[in-house]
Design a protein around this nucleic acid. Structure first.
Lengths: 240, 240
DNA sequence: GTCGGAAAATACATCGGATGACTCCTTGTC
DNA sequence: GACAAGGAGTCATCCGATGTATTTTCCGAC
């Protein structure tokens, strides 16, 4: 095994073994390199890799620290990784979201505080009628993020956040191509918010499912029509 | 932004932009470094980071390649990241698994081929009555992996695979502490397999839910009893 | 005594070059 | 045609030097 990979494992073990607690500062590069028996350059490769996945936090002029290792931090990596997926796997992500989102919404109906429900309502109210596509999208993402957060499960939040990224593009297309999608989305959001406010978990679940399926169905139809353009992995999707 | 981070972004863009297709070979270190305007050492840090998350595949003496970028490959990273989570977030992972696993099982009931169902049956039959704990665990993991694979959704497979890792430890404890857990698990597995063989999606879903909840309930009780030992994030769980 | 700023100390950032190890392909032999 | 030796190409690893950012220390002004 390359020394760098071994260093990654060693550092991982130091963290899992409790030697390096979350937030702890690592020995300086030179010391740690000597201790692990490799050069600073090789160690830096290991640190950089662990830094990309948010396990370590390097601050120039200060030192290298273990992050808090919170789920939301580590699963940030998911979003980065998911970015690399091609358009032809969007449906698979959407299918997973279709499973998670309704349950998250149902959980939120039971667990959200009055304050959180209020914030959700304010978010919807803050969206102007003539909102731009960017505003619509940002509002939509924040809406679902707040609900996920309301479930009280940070793992669920991060997972949904991560797999929502690729479906975002799908929603962009939809906004661009389908008339009335924005208005319909707003209506659905209001209905979900209402269900949450009434603590009606079953209704909230059903509405969330319908909401997600709306995008899914639209995408399925679109792929069915012009699916030939997306089927071969070699051809990129043509937009606008 | 550090040159290394910029290199990561640049390489990512090269891949997303189609300049580097899955499986493509990157220019050699020296050339790519010159092209990106940084030193080989810095480039190596970027490559190492992208290599850790399975976007690049470095082969000594040969070259550096873009991986296939398949979902199951990229989401492998999830397992690595999840490893860093502490025991006190196991319940959150389990809760997500409780959402995903039943639906995956229901999907599998509809989508699995006869051959896949047969392989699942053989897996169960292959487990000896006096199986060791390791054998039980390996069999259990493979059982659920096959079902997830049967859903036909690679994203679902990888996600379940990733979040199952931390719950594995929970099952270990259970196997160690609770009498009859192994026999009960086997019964539940057989029941799920039977439901899949009969293409009964609803039953399969229900059985899977009960199966996952069994672990969850046990863990909840255990944490309730000896929860004090797990509650403070500073104290690790004492095993052996 | 306190505040502000300059200087020193600390630690990471980046570089270029040298050497070793591994893989693959060519070539020559049997 | 099979096989082994050799060479070219490429990554692995190290070293040492220099640049840059942050923190800390210290000293003078008020």
């Amino acid at each position: 095994m390359p020394v760098t990979d071994e260093a990654i494992v060693r550092i991982k073990e130091m963290i899992l073994g409790g030697e390096l607690a979350p937030g702890a500062k690592l020995p300086k590069e030179a010391d740690l390199a000597e201790r692990l028996g490799l050069s600073r350059n090789s160690l830096r490769e290991a640190v950089k890799a662990l830094s990309l996945i948010r396990v370590l936090d390097v601050r120039q002029g200060d030192g290298t620290y273990v992050t808090s290792l919170e789920p939301e931090l580590l699963l940030d990596t998911l979003a980065f990784v998911v970015d690399f997926h091609r358009d032809d796997t969007v449906l698979h992500f959407l299918q997973v979201r279709r499973i998670l989102e309704p349950e998250a919404t149902a959980l939120a109906a039971r667990a959200m505080t009055e304050q959180q429900v209020g914030a959700l309502g304010e978010l919807l109210a803050a969206l102007p009628d003539d909102a731009s596509l960017d505003e619509l999208l940002a509002n939509d993402l924040e809406f679902h993020r707040l609900i996920a957060a309301g479930s009280g499960n940070p793992v669920l939040v991060s997972l949904l956040d991560g797999i929502s990224a690729p479906t975002t593009r799908a929603r962009i297309w939809r906004g661009l191509t389908e008339e009335g999608a924005a208005a319909r989305t707003r209506e659905q959001h209001r209905a979900i918010h209402s269900a949450l406010a009434h603590r009606d978990a079953d209704l909230a679940r059903a509405l969330a499912l319908a909401h997600v399926c709306g995008v899914e169905q639209w995408l399925r139809d679109t792929l069915g029509d012009a699916g030939a353009a997306l089927a071969p992995p070699s051809s990129g999707a043509r937009q606008h």
